[in-house]
């Protein structure tokens, strides 16, 4: 659930306070963009889609009910719908178009116990997953949504999300050929 200050911002935005909405934008823009860029795999179009998400959010913020879902879940639900609309409008592309397919740079991943997966491997592997698996991975690991947020955004139970993320990671590991 959102914090007290976030709840205040939402209420102010619902009364037409654009500055309050701007603060909500600041809190969520990065995560929404990462989710869209990860799923659509075109950074430039993801920028436009991100803008669309926040415009739609502003247009519909009066319909948001705090008790029904966390604000983040509501926002990612909009992001998902924007993505689906965009998908329908364009031919779905199977190609991998992340700008740089170099090895991931973060040293934290290069752990003695752990495999280091390259961006190319990950991009290819994710593209082979089911839409549902891609969705849960994008929400949980790219947009860094909590289990609760992901569950609300996907309209599933938290237990189902735990199942899905587990199966998605197992499937991804299998696809990219790691034992």
């Amino acid at each position: 659930m959102e914090t007290a200050s976030e709840t205040t911002l939402i209420q102010q935005a619902q009364h037409g306070n654009v500055s309050a909405f701007g603060k909500l934008y600041d809190q969520y823009a990065e995560r929404v963009y990462r989710y869209l860029a990860f799923r659509w795999r075109d950074s430039a179009e993801a920028e436009d889609l991100t803008a669309d998400v926040f415009i739609k959010a502003f247009q519909n913020i009066r319909s948001y009910r705090a008790g029904q879902a966390p604000f983040g879940a509501w926002l990612f639900r909009i992001a998902h719908n924007v993505l689906i609309d965009h998908w329908r409008a364009k031919t779905r592309r199977q190609t991998i178009a992340w700008e740089t397919l170099e090895t991931t740079a973060n040293g934290a991943a290069a752990h003695a116990f752990a495999q280091v997966f390259t961006r190319a491997e990950l991009a290819w592997g994710v593209a082979q997953l089911t839409d549902l698996q891609q969705h849960v991975i994008a929400l949980r690991f790219v947009a860094e949504c909590s289990i609760a947020e992901t569950a609300r955004a996907m309209q599933r139970s938290e237990e189902a999300v735990k199942d899905l993320q587990h199966k998605a990671l197992l499937a991804l590991r299998k696809k990219i050929g790691k034992p």
Partner: peptide
């Protein structure tokens, strides 16, 4: 270890919103 590494790698591999992109959005 494998699954957590995958999750961590996914987090790191996703495109970030650059300052210029942020400004455009």
């Amino acid at each position: 270890a494998d699954l957590l590494a995958l999750a961590t790698n996914l987090r790191d591999a996703a495109p970030a919103l650059s300052e210029a992109s942020q400004a455009r959005v």
